[in-house]
Write a protein that binds this DNA or RNA. Structure first.
Length: 516
RNA sequence: GCCCCCAUCGUCUAGCGGCCUAGGACAUCACCCUUUCAAGGUGGAGAUCACGGGUUCGAAUCCCGUUGGGGGUACCA
């Protein structure tokens, strides 16, 4: 088997069925050269969902063969990201597994052996060309309007010439001997069959001169050895997919099923989401107060849909419903508004305890990092926080908003413009009077419960011939220091009698001074 | 340049030849609820299904072309 074209069979109905029903082993194989963002995790999510849906396994493999670009901490961050999202990894670094190691740098001998095997079988060859010559060739080709490709100089070397160079200690790479005629078909479960003219293929480097494999070799070998059934990866891999198919075949292996999923585009423009174009690392969302499942739910619907109306999906529902067949092929744009909506929705679903546990870290961080004012003692009173959070729950879009929204419950002194005490269609005098009368009414109250306050204060509103807004606005500002707050009476109840009354008194004083 | 992928409301999408005078969600607007803001409810606006040719009794749905966007073109993944 050498330079023949590959003749695949079309994807039939039954193929497509068995393809998604048998237990799938999938993998996410990032290179630790940076920090993964929503785009990468979305691809990983599809992989994970396929594995879970079919009762298979999801593995994590670190493609760290580009040692120069490896970034410290990137591996830990990826794993941390999966943990945070709640997507378990069945095999990989940390958890191990029967097909390890899961770092490609620890599998060098494997790649070397297979490269050797490919050379022996004539599917690959040593190339002694220098980078300079390669560059020169490409420049020339470009100048001639030809597609830049390796000119296969070393493919024509005789055994003797090769031996001489080896003896001279010349460094070399190993290249794939791509077929030069015929066609190679890549079967993609999402896109059907993609046909490539072999004449347009390049003799890709499989093994670098430093002995490390390139993606093209390493991923093929690992995916096969790790028994990966479905390769779910970004669409940027489509152009090199024929090389992979050829390599599988050359090694005598059956290629896995490919699913090239579309990119996630940046919010601003039609560019692929990336650090350069508006992407933030996944864990950045955790720091910004996002709930992991809100992210997962949002990501799942970026390029995949269940039907014409499903929107909010639980973990169980998602796993049950997910199918590769329903993954779209058109790139989707990242939409922060929609993500925020999901986040707000899931925050509203939280129990009091969960809301507390999730919000506390945000409230307790230093003021400079967005936490409550530093004058508020840590740890924060959990009982108070629970009540307060309950009041703000349906208003929060992110957990990071908690400190800002609730600070007036925790501080001793409020600071606001006395002017804001005066409601629309009110004046200072009537406002002052209203506050004084409200104070009188509240003082006489036996208990300190919202329904009571509301009943008595509404009577007062009627007595003063005012509209509820006219009085309640003043009280709101007096008690919270802001014009926007949770419902007034519940707020006062949580705030407590002493604090509420003191604040109303302060407002009266402030307004008195302001008016005079 | 060459190769490849893609194309339905602003955004995510449903649609896989007749159920479409194109459905849902986010965003947006109005109204209701209402002590503010939210949440919730109701309703509206918003897509000549990129364009042009076919095929067909019939096309958003199939085919071809055009345009537009994206990706690849490394001893990076």
């Amino acid at each position: 088997m050498s330079q023949n074209s590959v003749h695949p069979t079309p994807l039939s109905e039954s193929d497509s069925h068995t393809i998604t029903t048998r237990a799938a082993r999938t993998r996410f194989a990032p290179s630790p050269t940076g920090f993964q963002h929503i785009g990468g995790y979305r691809t990983a999510l599809f992989s994970w969902l396929l594995a879970r849906h079919t009762g298979g396994q999801f593995l994590l493999r670190i493609e760290d063969t580009d040692t120069a670009r490896t970034v410290p901490g990137a591996v830990d961050a990826v794993i941390e990201g999966f943990k945070w999202l709640g997507l378990e990894i069945d095999e990989g670094p940390e958890v191990g597994g029967p097909y390890g190691p899961y770092f490609q740098t620890q599998r060098r001998d494997l790649y070397l052996n297979y490269a050797e095997q490919l050379i022996k079988s004539g599917h690959a060859y040593r190339c002694f060309c220098t980078p300079e010559r390669l560059q020169q060739v490409r420049d020339q080709q470009r100048a001639n309007g030809e597609p830049p490709r390796y000119d296969r100089l070393c493919r024509r070397l005789t055994q003797g010439e090769i031996a001489t160079r080896l003896k001279d200690g010349m460094s070399y790479v190993v290249r794939l001997a791509s077929p030069t005629s015929g066609k190679t078909v890549v079967k993609d479960i999402l896109r059907g069959e993609i046909t490539f003219d072999n004449a347009s293929l390049d003799d890709a480097v499989l093994l670098k001169s430093n002995g490390y494999p390139t993606y093209h070799l390493a991923s093929v070998i690992d995916d096969h050895l790790m028994k990966i059934t479905h390769v779910v990866r970004a669409e940027e891999w489509i152009p090199s997919a024929p090389l992979h198919v050829i390599t599988y075949t050359a090694l005598g292996w059956e290629p896995p099923i490919f699913a090239h999923v579309p990119d996630v585009l940046s919010a601003q423009g039609g560019k692929k989401l990336s650090k350069r174009f508006g992407a933030i690392p996944l864990l950045g969302y955790r720091d910004r107060g996002y709930l992991p499942w809100a992210i997962v739910n949002y990501m799942a619907l970026l390029g995949w849909s269940f039907d014409d109306k499903s929107n909010v999906l639980s973990r169980e529902q998602l796993i049950e419903a997910f199918d590769l067949d329903r993954v779209g092929v058109a790139p989707a744009r990242y939409d922060e508004e929609r993500l925020l909506w999901f986040n707000g929705y899931y925050i509203r679903q939280l129990s009091s305890e969960e809301l507390l546990e999730r919000s506390l870290p945000f409230m307790e961080r230093p003021e400079a990092e967005g936490g409550l004012p530093d004058v508020v003692a840590r740890p924060i009173d959990r009982e108070l926080a629970t009540k307060v959070l309950h009041l703000e729950q349906e208003r929060m879009k992110t957990l990071a908003e908690a400190p800002g929204m609730t600070s007036f419950f925790f501080v001793n002194t409020l600071s606001y413009e006395p002017q804001t005490l005066i409601a629309k269609n009110m004046d200072a005098e009537r406002t002052l009077n209203g506050l004084k009368r409200a104070h009188e009414v509240l003082v006489t109250l036996k208990g300190w419960e919202a329904p009571d306050m509301e009943a008595r204060l509404r009577e007062l509103v009627a007595e003063l011939g005012l509209k509820p807004v006219q009085l309640f606005t003043s009280l709101r500002v007096a008690v919270t220091g802001r014009t926007v707050s949770p419902p007034l009476f519940e707020t006062m109840e949580v705030l407590g009698r002493r604090t509420s009354m003191a604040r109303i008194e302060q407002a009266i004083a402030a307004l008195g001074a302001h008016a005079s």
